[in-house]
Design a protein around this nucleic acid. Structure first.
Lengths: 74, 74
DNA sequence: AGATTTTATATCCTAAAAGGTATAAAAATA
DNA sequence: TATTTTTATACCTTTTAGGATATAAAATCT
C-alpha cells in the first residue's frame, strides 16, 4: 500500500501504546474493524471521518479543523 | 437525509461565504463534486477525510485531532 | 538463540461514498 | 411583487472503503 505516516496515524499509534492496547483490542473497543485500525495507523488518507472519530473518542479526541502547517503544502 | 449541522459543516459554509463562493464554485476549486460540498455543508458524518481536506485546504485548514467537547458526548 | 505475540500485507466481498444530473425549494435581487 | 440565483433533495451509477480472513513479517519476550 505504501502510505506515509501522518500526524494522525502517529497520534493514534502513540495513544494506543499509552493505553497498552493491541490493534485488535483497540478495534474492538472502538467498534471498528481490525483492518480499519491498521489502515489508520499506516496513514491511509481516504478514511471515513465517522470511523476515525470512533477511534479518537476513546482517547478524548475528535477530528476538527486545524490550521495546515506549511510543511505539508505541496 | 436529515443530517444535523456540525462544527465542520458550519465552518465550511461560513468560510465559503466569506470568500464569496457558491457551492459549484467551491466544488470546482477544491476538485470535488458538487454533491460532496453539499453533503459536507449538511453535516454528513461519513465523509472521506482526503476529500474534506481538499476543501479545507482552500481555507488554510486541515483535519486534525482536537479535544472533544463534552457537549458532543452522547 | 527459539517461541510467542503483535503488526503488516494481501485477497475477496459487500455496503455505501461520491459523482452526475434533474427538479424542488429557498434565498437573493430588481 | 416577480425573476433570478443559489441551495436542498432525490435518483441512478461507478468506485472504493471497510470487514473478514489468511499469511508473512516484525517485535517482544524467555
Amino acid at each position: 500500500m505504501k502510505e506515509n505516516l501522518t500526524d494522525l496515524s502517529i497520534y493514534v499509534k502513540a495513544k494506543r501504546k499509552q493505553n497498552k492496547l493491541t490493534q485488535p483490542e483497540l478495534a474492538l473497543k472502538a467498534g471498528v474493524g481490525l483492518r480499519f485500525v491498521r489502515d489508520l495507523e499506516q496513514g491511509k488518507k481516504t478514511m471515513r471521518m465517522d470511523k476515525v472519530n470512533d477511534v479518537l473518542r476513546l482517547f478524548g479526541g475528535a477530528l476538527g479543523v486545524v490550521p495546515l502547517d506549511r510543511e505539508k503544502l505541496l
